Computed example of a mutant assay.
Amino acid sequence: MILPRGRDETEEQRADRRWTELLQEVRVIQTGVQILFGFLLTVVFTARFTTLGTADRVIYAVTLLLGASTTGALVGTVTFHRLLAGHRLKPQTVLWAARLALVGVVLLLATVASALLLILRLALNDTVAPWVVAGLVAWFVLCWFVLPAWVLRRYSSSD
């Protein structure tokens, strides 16, 4: 039995559906990013921060900047829509907002990796931490990018 491909919807209906889906995805990821960024903002005010060496302070600063960049990209998806709403550019808005959300996901990966590196350097040691972080980054890349790409290729090219 051959299943019909796609939906019976206009370009505008498709854009509306895709925007709703994108907004739900951003809501989920934005909550985690806000919590992570909030914790990062408080680290500098802890007593332990003053004992960090130069390398750990640099890692912290990079992590904080990555967290801010992640927040900017994800919030940017909403402001992108808000600024273009009413200009009859919904399909283009959804396309560009989705790209911005993907940039946010990549920045989130970098933020999480950097935060893990800082924490694991303090919890374990300088030698083990990079290897553990590399393994976790590989896991995230597999889950977030490789598997979806594989499914896309596996099921969309079989026409």
Rank of each mutant, 00 (worst) to 15 (best):
E11P: 00
M1A: 10
R18A: 10
V33N: 08
V28A: 09
Q30D: 01
T31L: 14
D16Y: 06
E9G: 02
I29Y: 04
V26N: 01
T20F: 09
D16P: 00
Q34N: 12
V28C: 03
R27Q: 13
P4Q: 11
T20C: 07
Q24E: 09
R14K: 12
R27G: 02
V28K: 11
V33L: 11
E11K: 05
E11H: 09
R27A: 03
P4F: 08
E12W: 04
L36H: 04
I29S: 05
R14I: 04
L36M: 11
E12Y: 08
M1F: 08
E21A: 14
R5L: 13
V33D: 03
R14E: 05
T31Q: 05
T10M: 06
I29D: 00
L36E: 04
E21V: 15
E12D: 03
M1S: 10
V28I: 15
V28G: 03
A15N: 05
Q24S: 08
F37I: 05
R7L: 08
D16A: 09
W19T: 11
F37N: 03
R14N: 06
T10N: 05
Q34H: 11
T31I: 14
R14C: 00
G6C: 14
G6Y: 15
L22K: 03
R5V: 15
L23G: 01
I29P: 01
I35A: 12
L23E: 05
V26E: 01
D16E: 15
L3E: 12
I35N: 04
L23V: 08
V28N: 02
V33E: 04
I35M: 12
E12G: 00
I29A: 10
T20L: 15
E9Q: 09
E25W: 13
E21T: 15
R14T: 00
F37H: 11
R5Y: 12
T31S: 08
E11A: 07
T31N: 10
A15W: 09
I35S: 08
Q30A: 10
E9T: 06
R5K: 13
E21M: 15
L22A: 09
R27Y: 11
A15C: 07
D16H: 12
L36K: 05
